[in-house]
Write a protein that binds this DNA or RNA. Structure first.
Ligand SMILES: NC(=O)c1ccc[n+]([C@@H]2O[C@H](COP(=O)([O-])OP(=O)(O)OC[C@H]3O[C@@H](n4cnc5c(N)ncnc54)[C@H](O)[C@@H]3O)[C@@H](O)[C@H]2O)c1
Ligand SMILES: NC(=O)c1ccc[n+]([C@@H]2O[C@H](COP(=O)([O-])OP(=O)(O)OC[C@H]3O[C@@H](n4cnc5c(N)ncnc54)[C@H](O)[C@@H]3O)[C@@H](O)[C@H]2O)c1
Lengths: 223, 223
DNA sequence: TTTTTATCGATAAATTTTTCTCGATTACAT
DNA sequence: ATGTAATCGAGAAAAATTTATCGATAAAAA
């Protein structure tokens, strides 16, 4: 890897934490107030020491023989990710996927909200989805810097992804959540998070292939 | 990890391969016929030896000083994943995300096709999206086993995910691609691939947070 | 009160994954 | 032809991550 930031938190840990969060949120809802790593491990099919280590990254401490208070744990994860202060984002490409993301309220929990959407199709410009009006692409860069938006979501067709990224970066965006299966070139200091759904599909189908060949093995898998 | 199948292929490799594939497909389109790992590494910001090792898992061999023939490489990856023979899948929960997936033709490339969709809402049952008619849930299990479907996609609300999974499994499904951020309990021999989008979002926002604090670092990130 | 048991934190060991090294191979230039 | 440079494959080394171990602690039981 040529470009590797100084990251003290292991990325696998970073990826597991939201899962714990969801799980704990449900657990709290179900009436439980305290939980141990052993218990979590059983439900999530993970090793308790790993869970303990992951949770420790958020700064939390458990009590021997007892475990963790779920509410405190949830707060600790929220704090760790900074989900308390909302990140406002722009989205480019209001097709099927774009609309799904705009409509979806579930990301609020993670301090994430799409506040404006852009498209180049006259058929879509002017329409409103989930309370967000679709604006012409030409307004993207300017509005972006005026509103001081730092996160952009790309849901354009693949061939338009680079162009969308360029406009976002020109507007001051430094974090791009890219759903197009396309490589985006960006200057230093811009983070691209590729959300390539085909990856999960490929992993699943390969595992299935192996399963079919070599006799049954066990379930469970993360993203 | 309690349940760990005998997997000879590293999962990170499995996750990088579709990315190579997309990239190489574009490269071929652009007129290039041969490529070296050094070249790929520059575009994808990965180390050449790693790429070489990843590609070797598909059984391909390169030529020193030259590299790989892109077309052969693409075939090798297709073969490796078995993308040549189509996997037919069922989908449950025809909301925003479900419709996006049904409409999307891009997964054909990976030997994946949604052939039937199910919902419990009378408003949606009977409608057609992307040539796929929405059927009532009650028909799922039976049709599933009759058509010998092995892969199911869950895009229901979180609270309905387990129920959907149970019906799928009753119908003989052994691979579940789950978009609901919920834990699904399955019997042994069923593979669950969780596609939790919040994971990517959390990783992005955490990296951004670190970036903002500790001065600029570099871009690039995979899913 | 004392013993037993579950769980924690810290650290060590094992495993997995990435990165490096080096000899071999091939194209291209001299 | 011969030498040079780019790239490969295989295996070693390094780094990261996961898993195991162990003493400490607190709750519950005896
Ligand atoms: N739909 C899915 O399930 C799915 C799955 C995996 C990946 N993706 C990827 O997500 C992206 C969007 O997919 P989709 O299904 O929503 O596609 P879509 O065709 O439904 O939507 C694309 C939208 O982008 C707009 N657009 C086109 N060119 C543009 C440009 N230059 N600038 C701004 N907007 C532009 C179009 O007007 C349209 O509204 C694609 O890259 C696709 O590969 C989608
Ligand atoms: N939309 C997004 O961008 C997004 C992002 C991340 C995760 N998700 C997850 O994907 C899932 C679907 O999201 P969505 O935005 O498409 O929701 P949605 O509300 O648009 O669609 C849900 C669909 O499921 C159907 N449904 C409800 N109960 C059902 C049941 N018991 N059996 C079968 N069908 C049932 C509903 O009729 C509806 O058509 C949710 O779990 C959500 O958390 C969505």
């Amino acid at each position: 890897m040529i470009n590797k930031p100084e990251f003290s938190i292991p990325e696998p840990t970073l990826r597991r934490l939201p899962r714990y969060y969801n799980y704990l949120k449900e657990l709290l809802k179900s009436g439980r107030e305290i939980v141990s790593c052993t218990h979590i491990g059983k439900d999530l099919d993970l090793d308790p020491p790993q869970i303990r280590k992951d949770l420790a990254y958020t700064g939390i401490r458990g009590v021997p023989k007892v475990g963790y208070q779920i509410e405190v744990l949830l707060n600790s994860i929220e704090e760790f990710f900074g989900w308390n202060n909302m990140d406002e984002a722009f989205l480019v490409g209001v097709g099927n996927m774009g609309r799904a993301l705009i409509d979806y309220q579930g990301f609020r929990r993670y301090g994430f909200k799409i506040v404006a959407a852009f498209d180049n199709s006259p058929d879509i410009i002017g329409k409103t989805f989930g309370g967000v009006e679709v604006l012409p692409l030409s307004k993207l860069t300017n509005l972006c810097s005026r509103m001081n938006i730092k996160i952009g979501v790309i849901t354009t067709p693949d061939h338009a992804a680079q162009e969308a990224a360029d406009m976002m970066i020109a507007g001051g965006i430094i974090g791009i959540w890219n759903f197009a299966p396309a490589e985006i070139r960006t200057p230093e200091g811009v983070i691209v998070q590729n959300e390539n759904l085909a990856t999960g599909l490929a992993v699943l189908s390969k595992k299935l292939q192996i399963l079919k060949q070599s006799g049954k093995f066990r379930q469970e898998v993360d993203q």
